[in-house]
């Protein structure tokens, strides 16, 4: 019930949109048909990629230790943590819709905020396949300038934003609607599992 109320807006919009497209198809309203077509093509694209992304995130959640991520990307891990964010982002596919769930998974494992934000931006600008595309259509000089200017700027702004928000005690919201205890980002999922493991033994 609570979940339903929380998603009321999305459900309402989705329903209205579906009615709009169906009516457009029925009466042959061209703009509506076209918008419906765009929706379906992107919807299918998402369905192709997101299940994999979330499965990998699930595996990451159970196999990778919080301490490992914290040591390499958490507080006190220095500039190296941004190199990790860069390398990780270079290997991602898709856009922000893939980057965000991954960023969230990193944050839950205690990566610090600046690194998480840097990862998101790097996922936009440094994906390898995309860079190859860019260079082949616009030339290597164009790509070189973009990297040379954007990388340091992204690094500095991400670190600054991360520090600014962390200093004011900001915590990322929990898209799953589970409360994280303040100062302890290990989510309730993990707590529950520890308990389950204890019981099964």
């Amino acid at each position: 019930m609570n979940a339903l109320r929380q998603h009321m807006w999305a459900i309402g919009l989705g329903t209205l949109f579906a009615i709009f497209v169906l009516v457009s198809l029925a009466v042959g309203f061209a703009p509506g048909e076209e918008i419906g077509g765009h929706f379906m093509s992107f919807f299918i694209q998402m369905l192709k990629i997101l299940p994999c992304v979330f499965v990998i995130i699930g595996l990451f959640e159970v196999w990778v230790k919080t301490e490992t991520v914290e040591r390499h990307m958490g507080h006190g891990s220095g500039l190296r943590s941004y190199v990790w964010a860069f390398l990780l982002a270079g290997g991602t596919v898709g856009g922000l819709h893939v980057g965000l769930p991954v960023a969230d998974a990193l944050y839950r494992k205690r990566a610090r905020l600046g690194v998480v934000i840097a990862f998101l931006s790097f996922a936009g600008i440094s994906r390898i396949p995309m860079t190859l595309f860019e260079a082949s259509f616009l030339g290597w000089r164009f790509t070189a300038v973009r990297f040379a200017v954007s990388l340091p700027l992204v690094l500095v702004t991400s670190a600054a934003i991360g520090r600014w928000f962390e200093r004011s005690g900001y915590e990322l919201p929990d898209p799953e609607g589970e409360r994280r205890a303040k100062g302890d980002r290990r989510d309730s999922e993990q707590g529950r599992h520890v308990r389950q493991e204890g019981r099964s033994r």
């Binding site: 997101l50 699930g58 599992h193």
Partner: peptide, 22 residues
Amino acid sequence: RALRIALGRFMKIAPAFIVMLV
């Protein structure tokens, strides 16, 4: 457990994705 986490997180964020797709 990993698959359960995957499904749970996916279902929770799905409505926001629908809004985005629209």
